[in-house]
Design a binder for these strands. Structure first.
Lengths: 198, 198
DNA sequence: TTTATTCGCTAACATTCGTTAGTATATTAT
DNA sequence: ATAATATACTAACGAATGTTAGCGAATAAA
């Protein structure tokens, strides 16, 4: 009956959350069972409920943890006094950074949010819609001042966000180039597709 | 005890397959139950088994149906005597076309293949790896003859494929631009990111 | 040291799952 | 009309699921 081991600065709940992120990412939320999660934590399934309220709560916390970070970044970028194209590249770099350094949570947030229960589900969807609108607004501003090609902004946002989601494949790839090179390549290709062919 | 209604040129199994695609897309493979599927077909769950072998078989057929179409297209494109950049745009257009016109199956193939059981799983993963390799080879050829920017080809493939997967969001969007415009926008952005800034 | 609290355990629960067996009805072939 | 086949039904199965109750051990507070 050994207790869950914890480092300082991380509660038992946080340990469970991080194991849950890894498991949900690997198996998918529905396929991941509390008994699997318990095993990966090193404990019996029932014991988890001394720390968490439900399986869904884990998903809530993971999804909103990620969503909040992205919203905060968007606040910063909007407030910054830099050209639109730099704002976009800044956001792209942030997405890539998050995808690389908080891989499991970001992936889960991206692919498993549909299993959230209302009212969290609607809430999450609204946040996501809002984020994309704000992203598109930056692109549209760039189009108006001719620093970005005249394209359909929502489509561009869609492409950018999903393209970055593709790092998932990179992350599991065996022969991966280093993270900086990856970032540079992505910014080149994605940014290059936006700039006008002068 | 009314039988499943079928149009000519489509067997009962094909009807079940198409309903399964829609259901797996909406709920995810694990969350979609045979009882849900039965309901959407208009029949009791057990009755499905007069037409199919198992739930997993449905996933097999959906995934490999899609995968085979893409492989065949790749054969054609490789054999065509056109510039590399056109090959790539051709593939991009094909991906977009498939995503728009066979939305449910392509989406399921893209996101739910991990629930395939071996040996289908390994088989599918191999095909996928192979497809990307061939795609990357075209890009590398384009780089060698200077018609494409010197970028990391596998990264570019990753971006292209996932970007197109983003049409999923477009498909469910309320205010969607028309399909041709979407295609043109995507080709502009993605193709533009590859061409050298002359 | 005693007391209170945190936490992990076993056992069990009600559901839901994919699937099978067995039977009855509808359609097709003879 | 009769026989054969295809297909839908009800009922039930064993397994797996998320979760709760209740008990004892470990830790922290007094």
């Amino acid at each position: 009956m050994a207790r869950i081991k914890i480092d300082k600065n991380s509660s038992r709940k946080e340990l469970i959350l991080s194991k849950a992120a890894a498991l949900f990412r690997e198996k998918g939320f529905k396929a991941a069972s509390m008994r699997h999660l318990a095993e990966s934590v090193g404990v019996e399934a029932a014991s988890l409920y001394n720390h968490i309220k439900s399986k869904t709560e884990l998903l809530h916390e993971l999804c909103f943890g990620v969503a909040n970070r992205f919203m905060q970044k968007m606040d910063e970028v909007e407030a910054a006094k830099i050209p639109d194209i730099e704002k976009i590249e800044d956001l792209i770099r942030f997405h890539i950074y998050e995808m690389i350094h908080h891989y499991e949570e970001v992936y889960v947030c991206d692919r498993e949010w549909k299993y959230l229960a209302d009212p969290y589900l609607s809430n999450f969807q609204n946040q996501r819609r809002m984020y994309r609108k704000r992203f598109a607004a930056i692109i549209e501003s760039g189009i108006r001042n001719k620093s970005i090609k005249p394209i359909d902004a929502p489509t561009a946002v869609l492409i950018l966000l999903h393209a970055i989601g593709g790092i998932e494949s990179w992350h599991r790839s065996t022969q991966k180039i280093d993270a900086d090179a990856l970032t540079q390549n992505m910014v080149t290709i994605l940014g290059g597709g936006l700039k006008p062919t002068s």
